[in-house]
Structures are given as C-alpha cells and as structure tokens.
Design a protein around this nucleic acid. Structure first.
Length: 663
DNA sequence: TCGTGGGCTA
C-alpha cells in the first residue's frame, strides 16, 4: 500500500488545530487503523521529501483536544510515519479516542499495543468501559490484566474503576465482593476513592450492612462517602435512617440534596420531598441543581400540586436556569399532570430547541387530557420536523387514541409500528391496543388481541379487558378473564376482583358480588383504598374514603351534605349505586358512595375557595357516581372542576365532562 | 494526561 504525499503537513503543527481538507486523509482513515496497520508501519514512507515529525509533535497535537475526525487523521499520520509502536504516543491516542467516546477505536489501539500496556493504560480502558452500558467489559479487561501479573498489577485507580463498573451492572454483584477481598489484601481499602466507590457499590446493591461497615472503617470520609450511604438507605425506602445520616452529614452540597429529594420521590413520599426542597431553599450556601428540580417537579406532578409547580417554574425563570431538555420535559409533564395542558403547551411552544423527550411529554400530556385529535396532530408535526418516535412516543399516541375513542387511527398506528418505525410492540403497547378495542365495545377483538400477543399478557392487559367488560356489561367474558388475573397475581389479584365485583354490581347481580367479596376477604386481598388530594394555598390536603383524619372533617362533612342536597334538588342528581362494592341496602349504599374521597375533596375545595377551578387528584379511577356528581356540581355551583384519576383527566364544566362520559 | 456521589421525564 502506498500513501499519497501529505503536502500540507505543516498546517498540522500550527498552534490552532486547523480544519483539515478532505483529500488529506486519503480514502477512509479506517484503512490505516484496522487490520492493515502492521503492514502500513513497515511501508517505506521515506519517498516523501520533508522531514519526519517526532512523536512529541503528535503528543502536543493530541493535547489540543482535537475532534474525532482530527484524531483519526493524527492517528493516520502516526501510522504512516512508522510511530505506531511508540508507546508514549499510544497512551495519548487512546486517551483522545476515549475523550470522544469512541471506545472501539481506543480498543483497536489498545489491542495493538506492541508490548504489555502499562497499568495506566489498562486503567484508562477499564474506566472508559465502566461508564458504558457494557461495563462487564471492564471486568473482562481487569481479569486479563490480572492474568498478566506484574509489572502491570492493579493499583488503587484500577479498583476504583472496577467497583464503579460493578455498581453499574446488576450481574456483577458477586464480582464486586470478590474484588473487595483483593483490595483488603493489598491494603487499598483506606484510600478514600476506593472506599467511596465501595460504599457506593454496596449501597446501589442495597447491601447496607456491607456499605455501612466500609463506611465505618474508613479512616476519613468526605461528602461523597456520606452521600453514597444516604443514597443506599434512601433507595431501600429507609428514609428515616437516610434522613438521620443526611442531617449529620458535614458539608452537604447540591448532589447530597438531590439524592435526598430523589429518595423521597422514588418512594412516593412527595410531600416529604417538597418539604425537603423547602429546607434546601433555607440553606443559602447551596442552590438546587437540575436533578433536584426534575425530582421536585415530578413530585408536584404526582401530587397535582399546581401552585408548588408554578412556583418552581417562576424560580427557574428568575434564576435564569437553562431550560434544558430534562427541565422542560419535567415542566411540561408537571403542567399536564396538574391539569394545565394549556400551560404545558405554552412551555412547549416557547422552547427554542425540541427533542424527542419534549415532544413525547407534550404528546403524552395531550393524551391524558383526552385531546386525541390534537395528540395525533402534534405527532404528525413531530414527524414533519424529522424526529423518529420511540416506543414511549408511540405509547403516548396510542393512549391518546384510546382515550378519545379514535379506534381506527389507533389500530393503524399500532399496525405501523414495526414496518414504519421498526419498533416491536411491548406489553404496554398491547395493553393500549386492548384498551382501545375494549372501550370501543369490540370485546371479542380485544380478546383476540390478547390471545395473539407474542409474550405472556400481564395483569394490566387482562385488567384492561375486564374493565371493558364492566363498561359494556359482559359478565360471561368477565368471568372467563378473572381466572387469568388470579393466576398472574395470586396475592392481590391486581385489583381484578374489585373490577369483577363492580361488573356484577353494575349488572345488579348482588349474590355474585357477595361471593366475590367473600373470596376477597378470605384471601386477604382487599381493594386499594381510594385517596384524593387537593391543593389549597400551596398545601396539599389528602382525603381517604370516609376520612376521619382531616382536622376540619366535621365542617367538610357538613358542607358535603349541603352540596349533595343542592345538586339533587337543583341539578336533579340521583346517586348511582351501581359500583358500590358491598351488598348493602339502598340507603347504606348511598351513604357509602357519598363518602368517596373525591367528594370529600370537592366539598373541601368549595368550602375553601369562592371561585376558580377546583383541581383534584385521585389514585384510582373515578366511579360513575362521583363522575355524575361532579358534572352536576360544576353546573349548580358554576365551577370548573378538574379531576385527574389514575388514567386521565376529566374537566367538568356546565354539567358536562371533557371525556364525554367515555372513560 | 486515570479517581469516587445525581434525575426518572415520557
């Protein structure tokens, strides 16, 4: 192989990295780097008239943070000048490739090392892999390294990287422990970096006894040590313990606070997360970072805490925090989940740069508000801008179709998934499909869809079908389905029995309802208790069904009685008892539905505010009786009520609901 | 010229 002369070589050595012209790297630089390298090295390049650059010139060049293309060119030069065996050059070359996250090229250089690479080079490669999803490769290299023995023995750097690699790969648990043994033997355990990576690894694997032992035995600890161990307890849900340590921690920084807040959010302690965030704001020395803001916006979204969420938005604006993709996605999601799809849209429309994340959160937001047409429209806009949907985008679109009864559109998108987007439908997509068909009353097609699934249907899929049976009153199919749910969820039955009992109740088959309830209590599988939240003046109030815990409960009960009286007299509301679970007499049944948590919440909302929208968040699907009560309340009291239930939003206005009674 | 802790939004 012969290389064309390299005329503009001097350009390469100017202080600025020049933009190199195309012909400079003859064909593809890969040619020089791949298997031909060894022959290239021996190819006489002496035909060119200029003097050869020494290896230090290349080193200087690599220090100037060249781009990937430039590194490849330098690499090509190195090879053509016969310097590919100069080990002092290969290190910087590997380092540069790693800096550009091009591990395959770094690996090629590494594998062609003429002698045994020194420890630092091994370390570079091990560390590089530890940051990737294939962090097992770090372990593989580590083993190779050990096999060679001295003089390339592992040092404290190596161990740090190996523990990091282990912590990022769930299958490497056992390895981490074995390597820990070596560390103790070699006396590296007292190094703070090694210790920290160990504490972190055990914490991530939820092995707090080991994490705490390393923590306690460390000769010195810093913020990172403390933060790692706090994270470990928080991730297990031991938030009290985590908080104790957090409060003791010296020199807490933004990352420590992020870990604490995320710990609360991860275990659904959203109010505690908000409280923790407020604590953070009282500490002037530390400012919330992106991770904290994303977590806290997620807490607001889950709670439906609009005022708090708005406050965060203002905080972001005032402090000129960059609306990154993550932050804007979290904002859009927060507004959508707090019932303000208009605000979500405004954030979205105001973005300078949109990416798949922001588009997807907008689309999913529209879908949960039952704005199917707009959802599809936004989706096509996204495609027009050249974005390729991922599985979650498509999930949002499908969801939008099923919530709006756009059956044909939904079916067509589902069938296009593989041919058009190359995305194989997952369980969740099938769940959507079944929901889509089932709600529309095409129960047999939905049943066929479940049977056609390439994977085992999960509880969600069966439950969607069962729920459709309830809407359309198909007892026969419902009974056939319940066994599948019982098989999948032997403990709780995934709420299947509640649905079945509701199905019987809606058909007036009270004997069957009693049977199911008995079966449920025998197996100790009670339904999940209903719970609603409402935010008044920035405080989130929580209500359970027939709540007795709220400090103003007697006042609220009085108000609720008044509300129910007024809507039956003025709005013609008749309590619907179809979905009451118990076989009670009519009067008791009325009483039982009266105290559903969303009714308590709406009574409290009417009691506490004179005007404006009442926003309620609920953990379950809203029942038929509450739905019709809300409609009448919106008419009689002339108030807009927005209820977020487990799967979507209902906006009640002038006696109607945005779901057009299709939910 | 290698080090350790962060998020969960679809």
């Amino acid at each position: 192989m012969r290389f064309t002369p390299l005329p503009k070589l001097s350009l390469l050595f100017s202080t600025k990295i020049p933009r190199l012209q195309e012909p400079f790297y003859v064909q593809s630089p890969l040619v020089y780097i791949s298997s031909n390298t060894s022959s290239a090295i021996w190819e006489p390049s002496g035909t060119s008239s200029f003097s050869l650059p020494s290896h230090s010139t290349f080193v200087q060049l690599l220090k100037k943070r060249p781009s990937l293309t430039q590194i490849k060119q330098i690499h090509a030069q190195v090879v053509t000048h016969g310097l590919a065996q100069n080990t002092s050059l290969l290190g910087p070359l590997i380092h540069s490739y790693i800096g550009c996250r091009n591990l395959s090229f770094a690996r090629i250089v590494f594998d062609q090392f003429p002698s045994l690479p020194p420890t630092i080079i091994w370390n570079l490669m091990i560390q590089a892999y530890s940051k990737t999803p294939s962090s097992q490769e770090s372990l593989y290299l580590f083993h190779q390294m050990l096999a060679h023995g001295r003089p390339t023995s592992a040092d404290k750097y190596t161990f740090t990287f190996v523990f990091t690699a282990c912590s990022r790969h769930p299958t490497l648990r056992g390895y981490g422990e074995n390597v820990h043994g070596m560390v103790v033997k070699d006396g590296y355990e007292s190094d703070i970096f090694v210790g920290n990576s160990l504490v972190n690894m055990y914490s991530i694997f939820s092995r707090m006894v080991d994490a705490k032992r390393v923590f306690d035995e460390m000769p010195q600890r810093d913020v990172i040590t403390w933060t790692s161990v706090v994270k470990g307890y928080a991730m297990r849900g031991e938030l009290v313990r985590a908080r104790e340590l957090f409060d003791m921690m010296p020199g807490r920084n933004d990352v420590s606070w992020a870990v604490m807040v995320a710990g609360y959010v991860g275990h659904r302690f959203y109010n505690e997360a908000l409280q923790c965030f407020n604590d953070m704001l009282c500490h002037d020395e530390v400012k919330p970072n992106e991770a904290v803001l994303v977590s806290i916006l997620s807490a607001c979204a889950h709670l439906g805490a609009l005022d708090q969420g708005k406050w965060i938005h203002v905080y972001i604006d005032k402090n000129r925090i960059l609306l990154s993709s993550n932050i804007s996605t979290a904002l859009i999601d927060m507004y959508a989940k707090c019932g303000r799809i208009d605000c979500a849209r405004r954030v979205f429309d105001g973005l300078h740069k949109r990416d798949l994340l922001t588009w997807t959160s907008m689309i999913s937001g529209l879908s949960m508000h039952g704005l199917g047409a707009e959802c599809l429209w936004t989706f096509s806009e996204m495609l027009a801008e050249g974005f390729k949907p991922d599985d979650i985008t498509l999930l949002g679109v499908l969801n939008g179709c099923s919530h709006s009864g756009l059956v044909e559109e939904g079916l067509s998108i589902f069938h296009d998934m593989i041919p058009l987007w190359g995305i194989v439908p997952k369980l969740e997509h099938y769940g959507c499909l079944i929901d889509l068909l089932g709600r529309a009353g095409r129960l047999e097609s939905a049943f066929e869809a479940i049977k056609s699934m390439p994977m085992e249907p999960d509880v969600v899929a069966w439950r969607a079908l069962l729920s459709a049976c309830r809407i359309h009153g198909d007892v026969d199919l419902g009974e056939r389905i319940i066994n599948h749910i019982a098989e999948l969820c032997p403990g709780s039955h995934g709420g299947g029995y509640v649905l079945l009992s509701n199905l019987y109740a809606s058909m007036g088959q009270w004997e069957s309802v009693t049977k199911v309830r008995k079966a449920m209590s025998q197996r100790g599988s009670e339904g999940c208790p209903g719970c609603s939240w409402i935010e008044i003046d920035g405080v989130v109030h929580e209500f359970l069904a027939a709540d007795k815990l709220h400090p103003r409960i007697s006042e609220i009960n009085k108000k609720l009685n008044e509300v129910l009286r007024r809507i039956s007299i003025e709005g013609g509301y008749v309590p619907s008892t179809k979905q009451v679970l118990f076989d009670l007499n009519e009067e008791d049944k009325e009483q039982a539905v009266s105290w559903h948590s969303e009714k308590l919440a709406v009574a409290f909302g009417l009691l506490s505010t004179q005007e404006g929208t009442i926003r309620i968040t609920k953990n379950l699907r809203t029942c038929e009786d509450c739905h019709s009560a809300m409609k009448t309340i919106s008419l009689v009291f002339n108030r807009e009520i927005v209820v977020r239930d487990r799967s979507r939003f209902h906006t009640f206005r002038y006696g109607n609901c945005s779901c057009t009674d299709y939910w």
